[in-house]
Write a protein that binds this DNA or RNA. Structure first.
Lengths: 120, 120
DNA sequence: CCGGATCCGGTCTGATACTG
DNA sequence: CAGTATCAGACCGGATCCGG
């Protein structure tokens, strides 16, 4: 088993452009939304699912795997019987903050009605 | 005829989160790549197509339309007989610069081998 | 119940061919 | 050169199913 290649990830892997490479990792509708939730303090599968945008469960599971592979988050049990997992941003993951911040600022300025959680 | 709904755009339009709204506009593999090219000085359809990542022609045409709708770029003829068009960033479009810059910085730091064009 | 895996129809992508 | 048309296959998203 090699790839299963979710979200056509890897297409730009050899691009010399860092923007293209980054888009290969986070360039889809859902990934950054999960990262946003992590910045907002959410940590569990259920919390991600409960977000306003209603990410489908299979997509969420896939994106979490991807984020782990890229070492943007780590998964660890925080409770036994029943076992529960939490997802936490790594240092590398936290450094995505400026991207989210830039997006939020652009959105707040150009999309009426949007209001940031200002927690990046 | 209303829909054609490219790239499932509009799904997050009513989200209160600016990040989600922005991802609705630029949250796909190709859109920001075109914007990147614009920042890099490219202006014509052919120049976008010639980029390293080889965007499919139908996708390019669709994304350009979207960017025009969102007033991120404008299209105008710069030559007659034969007529030639150029695409130029609006002020709103240029303000996407910080997002690209943040992505480029993250990419340069975390993806070995990538080198920015440093022109944001 | 919670955290996911699986199934499946419909939509979108992307390669190629075609047109002005 | 600047797109439009076409079409198979990949992917999304909703529903459902399953293990602990």
């Amino acid at each position: 088993m090699k790839k299963t290649n979710p979200t056509s990830s890897g297409a730009f892997a050899r691009s010399p452009c860092p923007v293209a490479c980054v888009l290969d990792i986070i360039g889809d509708k859902w990934t950054l939304l999960v990262v946003r939730d992590l910045f907002a303090g959410k940590r569990t599968y259920g919390e991600f699912q409960a977000s306003f945008e209603k990410i489908p469960t299979n997509i969420l599971a896939e994106r979490l795997k991807r984020l782990i592979e890229y070492e943007i988050i780590v998964k660890s049990p925080y409770q036994q019987r029943p076992v529960r997992y939490e997802y936490v941003l790594t240092t590398k993951g936290k450094e995505l903050g400026p991207i989210l911040k830039a997006m939020a600022q652009w959105g707040e300025k150009h999309i009426p009605g949007s209001k940031a959680i200002s927690k990046w």
